[in-house]
Amino acid sequence: MKLYADRPFRWCLQVLSDLFAVFVTGFATWLATEAHTQVMRLRAPGDGLIEAGAGLRGTFDSAADNADDLPLVGEALAGALHTGSDAGTRLSEAGQWQVAAVSDLAWWLAVVLIGLPVLFLLVTWLPLRVRFVRRATAGVRLRRLGEGGQDLLALRALVTQPLPRLAAAGEVTDGWRTRDPEVIAELAGWELHRLGLSAHV
């Protein structure tokens, strides 16, 4: 498998693009983790509401249980105190809703902060790298085949070269028709150069 070009300039560009992809992925992961941590700090008020609601409910329930033993007014007083207990329950529920909302926000924010850069790389960088690796690997295999591989590379060069270049090099097409070894080697070199490979193994 051929991962990088033989030509120095193209090799440098590929290495820089790979380093950029690694940097973007790492930075996005760090940023998402940091954002998740910071947003999760916003759940503190919700946790406070849950604790306050639980404490309020416990206090009113305890008072209601004690008031129930009082003669005459005990039952009515206990009922009133249980109403306060319901307020503590609602307070706890409000805190739980806030904690859940903050947790969801932190999770989705982290997903977006990681997902968008990675999606960008999957759409732009990865297809280019995969295409290069496939073409360069095939080019290396053909280069190793000797004359047979040169013929195929020369034919590919005739198909892929711009028409003005072929028209300006009429002797090349004549040499192709006459099976001139030097012309075939030159054409194969054109194709290997286009793939970022050197003409020699």
Rank of each mutant, 00 (worst) to 15 (best):
L128P: 00
A106E: 03
E171T: 04
D104C: 03
Y4W: 08
R57P: 04
L187K: 00
R144D: 13
F27Y: 15
A44K: 11
H200V: 14
L49A: 13
V201Q: 12
A169T: 10
A136G: 06
G189H: 05
I114E: 06
S103N: 14
W30T: 04
R144M: 09
G175M: 11
L113C: 02
V99E: 06
F60Y: 13
A78C: 06
L195T: 01
L126F: 14
L153K: 00
F132M: 07
A28E: 05
R10M: 05
S198H: 12
G53D: 09
L3R: 10
A157P: 02
T25S: 15
P164D: 05
L163Q: 07
T124L: 13
A67S: 09
T89G: 09
P71H: 06
G53T: 04
H193Y: 06
L3F: 12
A80K: 11
R179L: 13
G53W: 12
A32R: 04
I114M: 11
G46P: 02
L142H: 07
W176D: 09
L91M: 15
F132T: 03
L192M: 07
T83Q: 14
F9E: 15
T25F: 15
Q96C: 04
E75S: 11
L105V: 02
L77I: 02
L166N: 05
P162L: 07
V39R: 01
L70F: 08
A185E: 13
V130L: 14
D68W: 08
R156K: 06
R131L: 15
A44V: 10
G95W: 03
L128C: 08
A78E: 03
G74V: 07
R144P: 01
R7M: 09
P162A: 13
V24R: 00
L49D: 04
A21E: 05
A94M: 10
D151R: 14
V133Q: 12
T89H: 03
H36Q: 10
E93G: 05
T33Y: 11
F9A: 13
A169L: 12
L142P: 05
G115C: 09
L56C: 04
L49P: 00
V183Y: 05
L155A: 14
F60A: 12
R90V: 05
T33R: 09
T59Q: 07
R7C: 01
L192F: 01
A28Y: 03
P117D: 05
V112Y: 02
R144N: 12
L77A: 10
L119P: 00
L197S: 08
L122C: 07
T37Q: 13
A110G: 15
E186I: 00
V39T: 12
